[in-house]
Structure formats: structure tokens, C-alpha cells
Design a protein around this nucleic acid. Structure first.
Length: 525
RNA sequence: GGGCCCGUAGCUCAGUUGGAUAGAGCGACAGCCUCCUAAGCUGUAGGCCGCAGGUUCGAAUCCUGUCGGGCUCACCA
């Protein structure tokens, strides 16, 4: 049963239109008030010009002549459709969880924090956004992977290793100052201690010491990253090292490919990419005058490498402060023949509040609230939901006090409470009397219509690349369920069978949403 | 100055890709537990959708201009 086709057929018959192509397109939309029915079509307005008729006359004729498991009424140019109780009852015997299918493989890259410092609180939003997007895409595409790019090569890592080395010497009692451009955070001291506890530092020669820093200290940071993400319920199935990208000569491949297309040139001892040919306002350096590769070149190389692994869709989750990098990255990929392959999700900034005061985040002095502390303080579920409780385009005010409250301010409790209530009903299987299914009223129909929108919401999430769509869907469903629950009982009411089935379907949909959002399915509050 | 994001209820924000009387949470006020968890529900109050034009049957939504806030404009990553 497809409402749109029924409407198309009715239009064709009623107005003698022979081809569907002659009918302007229209959407099946939701009525503003469930009392008007569940679905609506503004078909009168759409056809008015073509038929040279008043919109309400057109809607009237269509409403009167369309037939199916529903009642149709017209209001102005709208045809409002109220599905029959029988139709909804049979709908309840099928699953609501279903997905559109898109052929191809997707790769979502996110967090990708430098191993020179912890995954900090500013990474939190991108981490959750990326993990939820991966969960959604893996249900829509043939395959979807999540990936963390480890920037474990280059100037910053050298600086980090130097910082650890100075801290080690200080721990040994040497009077040495940390250079101004070092990493000053206390965690560097912790790493220094850990290195001393793991390796026999005093008996290493200079080369071995550097080796311990370059490999040992850096991998300690990586382990820390993994542990933090793990606590946040963020699972990466691929970790890619910048060292490998360099070792496999991907930057050289990029230089070669761009060179073949005559898109590079030398100037002032540096090698430049003619990105202006692709809309950039300025050409960009690929190889610095000192011979080192820029981050830009290595990042292009990394993206080329990702594409070489057979991904049809690349999704990068970036902080809004990387906006400048976007046009450059697109220029380079277009030059390499991969226009539109990259889909960047720009996540706006988060401001954290505690007791009405913004939490200062001075990365340089190392005085940041860590993501570890945040998760420990408010819990994984609250953290995840708070991070996606606004659209990615909106800056997020994250109130830590609110996230700790077990009240309505905190959406995670609202959602989990609805689920717990529904689960508790289903545990009363023994008391069930299987009353007749007599029909569906306002609260049931609101919930049914929402459940029936599952696939649409998934499609919308993919189109917008924004997990907020699903968070608000979970909230909408919970809202509808709380009202449904409050209005009447399920077990023992005269509509027991239909209300029971509806509760079962609600639980199924919520469980799938919880899996996608990465939050726990609680049995008790 | 250029690019991107945001201006909608007192506050924080939705608005399903142009549709009907613009919604929710918080805050304020008034109610609801003999009943599957009251961490919930019901009701009231609160709006020049930043501003000005334009497009059309119809605009919070699209276009142009303009004002305000955020991010960003490296041989840093």
C-alpha cells in the first residue's frame, strides 16, 4: 500500500491526465494535528495552475474518489488522510525498524587527536558524532568503518618527545627548564614517570633513549586515547598511523600525480600546489623550503590512501575551527580526480559551564578539564546524549550541572525512563488478558505515526549527516510514549491487545536507537 | 575585508529539504499518584521568526541587500 500511488492514480482517473510526468510533484506530509488524520497532501495547491481550478475543488474531488484503508477529507487544498484501525493493526505486525540501502562502502574519520596530548573535552562532541554516524552508515551502506588518524610523525611529535625528555631529566634531579614552546601539561610528567617505570633509562644510550620516547612514550599516549574513547563508548575499528602513510610514500605519490598534471611549481625553495586553479584564494605550500612536508601534503596523501582502500564515501568529522582546511582539501582531491568524494561534517564548538560559569580551557598551560574527568563525573550515556542534543551546526552550551541532574533537563533520563516504563509493561506477560483490539485514538496514533517514520528519520540523518536527528527522534518517541502511558493502562485495559503490540514495537525501535546512539538499555531507573 | 555557521517565547534550541493556527525543554503560575516506576502527565501565560525588499496560490524556510554574534583566513597541526 502506497498512499502516493493511490493519489497519483486518483488524479489520473479523475482529471484525465494520461501521464504521471504531467503531474507536478508533491510530498506526503504530516498533519499539524493528529485529529485531522495522520497524513496530508497539498495536492489541490499543486494542481491548481495546471487544471485551472480552485485548490479546494481539486482536493474535494480527490478526497471523494480515492479508495483504500483510510478516510480522506479535504480542507482547503489539502487532502487529509486518516488510516483505518485495521491498517494500523496490521502495520503493527511488521517491524518498524528498516533501512534504506545505499550501495558502497563508507569510512568515517574522526577525533584524530595528536598523540602529544590527551583526547580533551573539545574532542568529545566530534567523537560522539562520528561514532553515531558510523553506526547509522553501517546499517545503510554495505559497510562502514570508523577510523582514527594518528598524527605520530612531524614537528609536534618531536616537540612532545623533547618535553618528555626534559621532564625525565627534572625527575632525575637535573636543573633544566622546559623550553617555552614545549608541552607544559602535567600529563607530560606522568608520561615521564611511566617511561622511567617501564624502561631502564639510565642504561640507555642517546639513540635508545630517543627510540623509547619516539615509540614508547608516543604509544603510551595512544593507549590513553584508546582508553578514553572506550569509556565514551567510541569504538574505532581502524587506527591509521601517519608514519605508515609516510613510509609507504603516499606523499610522494601525491607530488607525482600533481606534478604530472602540472599543478605544482617551485618558488623560494618551496614546492607549491596551484590550488587557486580550484577556487582557493591562494596557492599552498606542499614542501617547505627546509625540505619538510607540510601537514597539508601529508593529509592529502592520507586521503588518497583512504580512497585507495576502496571507500566510496569518505566522511571527515572536523571541528569548526578547521573550516579553513576544507576548501584546500577539496581543491586537492578535485585535482586528483576525486571531486565530491569527501563529505566533511563541521561540528561547531562546545562551551562547558559549571555553576553558571564557563569552564576555561587554556590548552597551553594544560589547565583543561579532561574528557576522562567529564565522563567519570556525568557518565557515558549523559555525555553522549548531551553532545548530540543540538544540531552539529549550532554551538553547544554543555552545562555539566544539568548533565548530572536526574531530571527533565537531562534528555537521557527522559529517554531511558520511557524505555524502562515500556519494558516493565512487557514483563507482565502473565497478567495479560488479550483484550480485543478496538482501535487507536489520539495518543496511539501519535505514537504509531512516529514509529512509522523510522526509515525517514534514518534517511534524514544520512542526508544531513547529523546524529541530532536521531537524538530528537528518540526524544519525540519517548514524549509520545509517556503520554500514551499516562493516558491509560496497557495491561488490563479494553484495548489491551493493540496497546500491548504498540508497546512491543516501541521497545524494538528504542532498542535499535539506543544501539545506534550508544547508550545503555536500562531495566530500572 | 573574504569564506563558513548562527540570529525564532525571558533562557537554550527544534521546525522533516516552500504548505494549514510557528513547536519543545528550562524558568513562572495552576492542577494530577487506590492504578503497568510522578525521573511522568494535564493546563495557563509568553512571538514583528534580527531588519528591509523580492520570488508565488502560499515564505521562519528560497533570492538580494543589511545589522548583530561565533569560527577561520600559515612554509602550525
Amino acid at each position: 500500500m502506497d498512499l502516493k500511488s493511490i493519489i497519483y492514480e486518483t488524479i489520473e482517473k479523475q482529471f484525465n491526465i494520461t501521464s504521471k510526468d504531467d503531474i507536478p510533484s508533491f510530498d506526503l506530509q504530516l498533519t499539524p494535528d493528529i485529529g485531522m488524520g495522520e497524513y496530508a497532501v497539498p495536492v489541490g495547491f499543486v494542481l491548481a495552475k495546471k487544471l485551472k481550478m480552485a485548490p479546494d475543488k481539486i482536493a474535494e474531488q480527490i478526497a471523494e474518489n480515492m479508495h483504500g484503508p483510510f478516510e480522506a477529507h479535504y480542507v482547503k487544498g489539502f487532502v487529509n488522510i486518516r488510516m483505518s484501525d485495521d491498517w494500523w493493526l496490521s502495520r503493527l505486525n511488521e517491524a518498524f525498524v528498516s533501512y534504506p540501502h545505499i550501495t558502497g562502502n563508507a569510512l568515517v574519520e574522526f577525533v584524530s587527536a595528536n598523540p602529544t596530548g590527551p583526547v580533551h573535552i573539545g574532542h568529545g562532541r566530534g567523537a560522539v558524532v562520528g561514532s553515531i554516524l558510523t553506526n547509522v552508515l553501517s546499517r545503510v551502506y554495505d559497510k562502514a568503518d570508523s577510523e582514527f588518524y594518528i598524527n605520530d610523525a612531524g614537528e609536534q611529535i618531536r616537540k612532545f618527545c623533547n618535553s618528555v625528555e626534559v621532564r625525565i631529566r627534572q625527575l632525575k634531579g637535573e636543573q633544566v627548564e622546559l623550553p617555552e614552546d614545549s608541552y607544559h601539561g602535567d600529563y607530560v610528567v606522568d608520561i615521564a614517570k611511566k617511561v622511567l617505570g617501564t624502561y631502564d633509562w639510565d642504561h640507555l644510550n642517546e639513540e635508545q633513549k630517543w627510540n623509547v620516547l619516539w615509540n614508547g612514550a608516543v604509544s603510551m599516549m595512544e593507549e590513553w586515547h584508546k582508553a578514553t574513547l572506550d569509556k565514551l563508548g567510541v569504538m574505532m575499528n581502524i587506527w591509521t598511523s601517519e608514519r605508515r602513510i609516510r613510509a609507504e610514500k603516499w606523499p610522494e605519490k601525491v607530488l607525482e600525480l600533481l606534478g604530472e598534471k602540472h599543478l605544482t611549481y617551485e618558488q623560494e625553495d618551496a614546492l607549491w600546489f596551484k590550488s587557486t586553479a580550484f577556487g582557493d584564494d591562494k596557492d599552498r605550500v606542499l614542501v617547505k623550503s627546509n625540505g619538510e612536508y607540510t601537514y597539508y601534503l601529508v593529509d592529502i596523501a592520507y586521503h588518497l590512501e583512504k580512497i585507495s582502500r576502496g571507500y566510496d564515501v569518505l566522511v571527515d568529522v572536523w571541528g569548526a575551527d578547521h573550516i579553513g582546511h576544507l576548501s584546500r582539501m577539496n581543491s586537492a582531491l578535485t585535482a586528483l580526480g576525486f571531486e565530491n568524494r569527501l563529505n566533511v561534517v563541521l561540528v561547531q564548538t562546545v562551551r562547558f559551564w559549571r555553576q553558571g560559569v564557563a569552564v576555561a580551557m587554556s590548552k597551553r598551560k594544560g589547565e583543561f578539564l579532561s574528557l576522562d574527568e567529564l565522563i567519570e563525573e556525568i557518565g557515558k550515556d549523559a555525555a553522549r546524549i548531551m553532545f548530540v542534543s543540538r544540531s552539529v551546526d549550532a554551538t553547544l552550551d554543555f552545562d555539566i550541572d544539568v548533565a548530572k541532574q536526574k531530571a527533565m533537563d537531562n534528555p537521557v533520563y527522559y529517554i531511558q525512563y520511557a524505555y524502562v516504563r515500556a519494558r516493565n509493561i512487557l514483563m507482565k506477560e502473565q497478567e495479560r488478558q488479550y483484550g480485543d483490539a478496538k482501535g487507536f485514538d489520539t495518543y496511539e496514533r501519535t505514537l504509531l505515526r512516529l514509529l512509522n517514520a523510522y526509515e525517514d528519520r534514518i534517511a534524514q540523518t544520512v542526508r544531513k549527516m547529523d546524529p541530532f536527528v536521531l537524538e530528537s527522534y528518540a526524544w519525540d518517541l519517548s514524549d509520545a510514549f509517556h503520554k500514551f502511558y499516562q493516558f491509560d493502562r496497557v495491561v488490563g485495559c479494553e484495548y489491551e491487545n493493540s496497546r500491548w503490540l504498540l508497546t512491543e514495537r516501541f521497545v524494538e525501535v528504542m532498542e535499535e536507537l539506543f544501539d545506534i546512539l550508544g547508550i545503555e538499555k536500562l531495566e530500572h531507573m
